[in-house]
Deep mutational scan, measured.
Amino acid sequence: TTVKLGDIKVTFDNPEKAKKYAQKLAKIYQLTVHVHGDTIHVK
């Protein structure tokens, strides 16, 4: 599962960890989390 934020891409083996990371980023940057299959976009 890949978390994308602009040019930053972080890949996790564990989808749950990816989701938590995405939510953490979203909170920090006051953005929202969008899940598209294996990719989680923070924008």
Rank of each mutant, 00 (worst) to 15 (best):
T1P: 04
T1E: 03
T1Q: 04
T1K: 05
T1L: 08
T1V: 12
T2G: 04
T2A: 04
T2V: 12
T2P: 03
T2N: 05
T2Y: 07
T2I: 13
T2M: 08
V3D: 02
V3L: 03
V3K: 02
V3P: 03
K4C: 15
K4H: 11
K4M: 14
K4W: 14
K4P: 03
L5P: 02
L5T: 03
L5A: 03
L5I: 15
L5N: 03
L5M: 12
L5W: 14
L5D: 02
L5C: 15
G6D: 03
G6H: 09
G6M: 07
G6I: 07
G6W: 10
G6Q: 04
G6A: 06
G6V: 06
D7K: 15
D7E: 11
D7F: 15
D7Y: 15
D7T: 14
D7P: 12
I8F: 15
I8W: 15
I8G: 02
I8L: 12
I8E: 02
I8N: 05
I8Q: 04
I8S: 06
K9I: 14
K9S: 13
K9A: 10
K9N: 09
K9M: 13
K9R: 12
K9Q: 10
K9V: 13
V10W: 15
V10H: 03
V10I: 14
V10K: 08
V10T: 04
V10Q: 03
V10D: 01
V10N: 02
T11C: 15
T11I: 13
T11H: 13
T11F: 14
T11G: 04
F12W: 02
F12S: 00
F12V: 02
F12Q: 00
F12C: 11
F12K: 00
F12G: 00
F12N: 00
F12D: 00
D13N: 10
D13C: 13
D13W: 09
D13A: 10
D13H: 09
N14S: 12
N14T: 11
N14D: 14
N14V: 05
P15F: 15
P15E: 09
P15I: 11
P15K: 09
P15A: 11
E16T: 09
E16G: 07
E16Q: 09
E16D: 10
E16W: 07
E16F: 07
K17H: 11
K17F: 10
K17L: 13
K17Y: 10
K17E: 14
K17P: 03
K17R: 11
K17W: 10
A18Y: 01
A18T: 01
A18R: 01
A18P: 00
A18W: 06
A18E: 01
A18K: 00
A18M: 02
A18D: 02
A18S: 00
K19N: 08
K19W: 15
K19H: 12
K19Y: 15
K19R: 12
K20M: 11
K20N: 09
K20T: 06
K20Y: 09
K20D: 10
K20E: 13
K20F: 08
Y21V: 06
Y21T: 03
Y21K: 02
Y21E: 02
Y21H: 04
Y21S: 02
Y21D: 02
Y21P: 01
Y21C: 14
Y21A: 05
A22V: 06
A22K: 01
A22R: 01
A22E: 02
A22H: 01
A22L: 07
A22P: 01
Q23I: 10
Q23C: 15
Q23N: 10
Q23L: 11
Q23S: 07
Q23R: 08
Q23G: 04
K24P: 00
K24G: 06
K24W: 15
K24R: 11
K24M: 15
K24N: 08
K24D: 08
K24A: 12
K24H: 13
L25Y: 01
L25Q: 01
L25A: 00
L25N: 00
L25I: 10
L25V: 05
L25F: 02
L25K: 01
L25S: 00
A26Q: 03
A26P: 00
A26V: 03
K27L: 10
K27F: 11
K27P: 03
K27Y: 11
K27D: 12
K27N: 09
K27C: 15
I28W: 11
I28A: 07
I28P: 00
I28V: 07
I28Y: 13
I28H: 08
I28Q: 10
I28N: 04
Y29W: 07
Y29Q: 03
Y29M: 08
Y29E: 03
Q30Y: 08
Q30K: 11
Q30T: 05
Q30F: 10
Q30A: 09
Q30D: 14
L31W: 04
L31M: 11
L31A: 07
L31D: 03
L31V: 06
T32H: 07
T32A: 09
T32Y: 08
T32V: 13
T32L: 08
T32S: 10
T32W: 06
V33N: 00
V33A: 03
V33H: 00
V33W: 07
V33I: 13
H34S: 12
H34K: 09
H34G: 04
H34L: 12
H34N: 07
V35E: 07
V35D: 07
V35T: 07
V35H: 07
V35C: 12
V35P: 03
V35Q: 09
H36F: 12
H36Y: 12
H36K: 11
H36G: 06
H36P: 00
G37A: 06
G37S: 04
G37K: 05
G37Y: 06
G37I: 04
D38W: 08
D38F: 07
D38P: 07
D38Y: 06
D38S: 12
T39P: 01
T39Q: 06
I40R: 00
I40H: 02
I40D: 01
I40P: 01
I40V: 06
I40Q: 01
H41F: 13
H41N: 06
H41L: 12
H41V: 14
V42A: 02
V42D: 00
V42W: 03
V42Q: 01
V42C: 07
K43P: 03
K43E: 11
K43H: 13
K43M: 14
K43C: 15
